[in-house]
Every structure is written in C-alpha cells, then in structure tokens.
Simulated scan of single mutants.
Amino acid sequence: MRHGKKNNHLGRTAAHRKAMLSNMAASLIMHKRLSTTVAKAKALRKYVEPLLTKSKNDTTHSRRTVFAYLQEKEAVKELFDEVSAKIANRPGGYTRILKTGLRLGDNAEMCVIELVDYNEDMLASTGAAAGAKKTRRRGAGGAKKKAEGAAEAPKAAETDATAEEAKDAE
C-alpha cells in the first residue's frame, strides 16, 4: 500500500530525479513550453509552481532560493525579469498541461506543459470569447423561438417607421 506517499519517483534515484526536474524547470522557464510525458509533467508542475510563486517577490533571498533549485543563472534571470512580471497578479495555476496523445515507441502518454500567460493563441481566443455572449444549445424549441424573435424585430421596426411617416405627413 502507498498511503501518504505523494511524490512520483519516476523510476529514478533521488539525485537523478532532482537533476531531471531542475533541468526541466529551467527549460520550461526559458522556452515557456515543454513536451514530455504526463507523469513527468505532473511532477514538474509540483516542482516549478512554488518557484514561480517565489519569483513574485524579487529579493536576494528569493533569488538565491530559486537558484538552489534551478542551478542555472539565465533561467533565474528570465524568471525574475520577464516571467514574474506576467504572473504578478495571478493567484496560482501558472502552468497548463495539454495531452497530445501516445508516443510511438513505447505508447507513453505524452503532453505539452506550458506557462499559462505565454500561449498567445489561447489568450487571443479567450479575449475574443470574453466579449461575445456565450450561447447554449437547448434543443429545437429554443432555436425556433430565436428565429421568431428575430422575425418580430424587423416588423417592429417597420411599424415605427410607418408611424414616423404618418407624423411627417401631418
């Protein structure tokens, strides 16, 4: 039984796992997106999200703490300069995991893990959708009522126009 054992060992020794997650976190910060297996992505999410939270407070102590995890100067600089500015008012949930299917060689479940605020395609689509009213499908009855309502609107406009013409004639 594995009661209370919440971290996935990923079939590696502790040192190998720590080095792998450190490298993956640095790559995610530098490239904003990473393709990997779902198990590694979930482990990486638990590893990198506290670092992203810590980057919101730009102090020497937090930089040194993050460097102890990442071991890469460029990644720490990128994290504190660019990434932290974008995630400043986000309360959490900095990463997104998108499943992409199965790997050909061993049929492992693959995914893309990315930083949420850096996917321009999704940001553009949610921005456009936020302005438009969402519609729901509720069966044929609702569609008929919408069509009838749309047909009644021009009729109302016609009656207003004829009333105005009558006033102009007087």
Rank of each mutant, 00 (worst) to 15 (best):
E82L: 14
R2F: 06
D168R: 08
L104I: 09
K32I: 00
K99Y: 10
V76P: 01
T126N: 07
K54L: 09
K134E: 11
S35D: 08
E164G: 01
S22I: 07
A75F: 03
K133Y: 06
K42G: 02
G105F: 10
A25H: 02
N23Y: 02
A140L: 12
Y118W: 15
E158S: 07
R136C: 04
A88G: 08
M1W: 13
K18C: 03
L115E: 01
A132M: 11
V112E: 15
M1F: 12
G101P: 13
L52R: 03
R90E: 15
T53H: 11
L79A: 04
A88T: 15
A19N: 10
I29C: 00
A132W: 05
G93I: 13
K99W: 11
N57C: 07
E72D: 14
R64K: 11
H16L: 08
I29Q: 01
S55R: 00
E152T: 09
S62E: 10
T65R: 04
A132S: 09
M30C: 00
R90T: 15
V76C: 03
E72A: 08
I29G: 02
A26S: 09
K32E: 13
K144P: 02
K134L: 14
A132Y: 06
G101F: 14
V112K: 12
S35T: 09
S22Q: 10
T37I: 07
K46G: 05
E120W: 03
A14S: 11
L98D: 09
T53E: 13
K146P: 00
T95V: 15
A68Y: 05
G149L: 14
E74P: 00
T135D: 06
R63H: 02
G139A: 05
K155T: 04
N23W: 03
S22V: 07
T36Q: 04
R138S: 12
V66C: 06
H3C: 01
R64V: 01
G11I: 11
K144V: 10
L79C: 06
R12V: 09
R45L: 02
A166V: 05
N107R: 15
E114A: 14
L10R: 01
L70P: 00
K73M: 03
T60Y: 05
A129C: 04
A132E: 13
E164S: 05
N57T: 14
D81S: 12
K133V: 12
A14L: 11
S62L: 00
V76F: 03
T36M: 05
K133F: 09
F80E: 02
T59H: 06
G139N: 08
R45W: 00
E170Q: 07
A19C: 04
K42M: 00
D168M: 04
M20T: 08
G131V: 09
V38T: 08
K145Q: 13
L79H: 02
N119M: 08
K99D: 10
R137C: 05
A39G: 03
R45H: 04
A150D: 14
R138Y: 10
R45S: 06
E109D: 15
T159A: 08
H3T: 07
K46C: 02
